[in-house]
Design a protein around this nucleic acid. Sequence first.
DNA 1: CATTGATCATAA
DNA 2: TTATGATCAATG
Length: 221
Amino acid sequence: MKPLPPETTSELLSRVKSIAGLTLGELAHRTNSPIPGDLRQHKGWVGQFLETFLGADSGNLAVPDFSKLNIELKTIPINKRGLPQESTYITVVPMLGAPNLAWESSEVRLKLQHVLWLPVEADQHLKLADRRVGYAVLWRMPTHIEAILRADWQELMEYVLLGRLAKLNASIGQYLHVRPKAANSRILTQGLDNQGNKILTLPRGFYLRPQLTQQIILKKC
DNA sequence: CATTGATCATAA
DNA sequence: TTATGATCAATG
């Protein structure tokens, strides 16, 4: 079962409103979708299931999930205290730079410009089928947050492009940070050393810390 | 117990 | 192979 993409933002919003408070089991039942016993070998299942359910049409292309609306969908795991349980993956780190290397044209900014955040219960003691979908938050990146993300991105990209990858770790960055993004720690991709030569290194991704996503779902920013 | 580093599934 | 969707699991 694959619904058509929403034509308008309000259509998308009415779709998410209609599932607020419902469990994943209920939604999976409606669409005759199999539901995994747990997420250990299906880590992306919740996000991919809800994407399909809502009619996201971008597959795994590097563009926002709802291509026509330019809106990115992020499901966000919520712990029993009602706060984000994990960081949020944004996009791959461009290890060799980009054609137009600036925050303004970065994938991070493009993806975070307009995001539909969809909270989903994620307490590990809750069976997958019993986890409820929450109330979605349609968010535009505010100027004061963008300023922080820009500074983080610039600092992080300096490590990447100036051959300081060995010193780049997840403790760097206020809201945005960089962590491994690979099947395992032996995977290699091209990067740069401090002479600008190509070397092989672990692929990495940009992630948002829960400190930011917490503010977002609480509508503090 | 929060954070960092490692890992799993799937599509094109 | 590299992007998407993320959570798992070791560590401090």
